[in-house]
Design a protein around this nucleic acid. Structure first.
Lengths: 113, 113
DNA sequence: TGTATATACCTCGGAGTCCTAGGTAAGCTT
DNA sequence: AAGCTTACCTAGGACTCCGAGGTATATACA
């Protein structure tokens, strides 16, 4: 995950959850989707993606099932669990508040005196 | 740096640089300013702040000078260097593009078909 | 006078995240 | 048959943040 250098942290989890909120998707497809809908501003590295998926699964936020991809290949499809849906809402809200706070720092000028 | 849990990474550097763009400020004051203008949404921990300042100084983006604070205490005042000003512009732009990309993932619905 | 509080600095070590670099395997195209 | 794309995986290093600890001084207050 790069280009925009170094921000991001936890944001990957959020974007994975959001992507899965539309439909169950396999890891490779999640990466392609994120890249596609950000116009390649965000690159999802496999070395970040798969460990992140495994941790989300461990935490019970997503569940996996093997299946066959649209390209006729073996693929692991992930879906949101109930806990995952709840977590997505919380994380979305949390991100919005965080981003808003950062923008405040970037915009707020000290009171003149 | 917390409350909004876990995002943030590199964002601290950006906010430090931005704070210093208004006026030279000591570390403690930087932390208080960020907390103040985000309405305490972002907490700046000293264990994050001081190492970050030292690294920015090492990288030549800020410069330090000992002085006396508004509370009559010994304090290290940091100011942006020329390289720091340049870096601030780049990081600001980078953050804006990153945040925009994340919001795109949070908002974009897959094309129906 | 002594003590508490706020100001102001610092570092160590752990936890967590991302990425580079490597690997496997199978389907499709040429 | 070779090469590309799809699809998965992990190990290890680099880095960042934070909790917890520490030092020191000015001011307020009892």
């Amino acid at each position: 995950m790069n280009e925009s250098v170094d921000f991001l942290k936890g944001t990957l989890d959020l974007m994975i959850l959001k992507t899965l909120s539309w439909a169950p998707t396999h890891g490779y497809g999640i990466a392609r989707w994120i890249e596609h809908c950000t116009g390649d501003v965000l690159q999802v590295e496999e070395g970040s993606l798969y460990p992140a998926l495994h941790k989300l699964e461990e935490r019970g936020l997503i569940a996996a099932e093997w299946g066959i991809s649209e390209h006729n290949r073996r693929a692991k499809f992930y879906r949101l669990t109930t806990a995952g849906k709840k977590q997505l809402l919380a994380a979305h809200d949390s991100w919005a508040r965080f981003a808003d706070a950062v923008f405040k720092v970037l915009r707020t000028a000290p009171a003149s005196h």
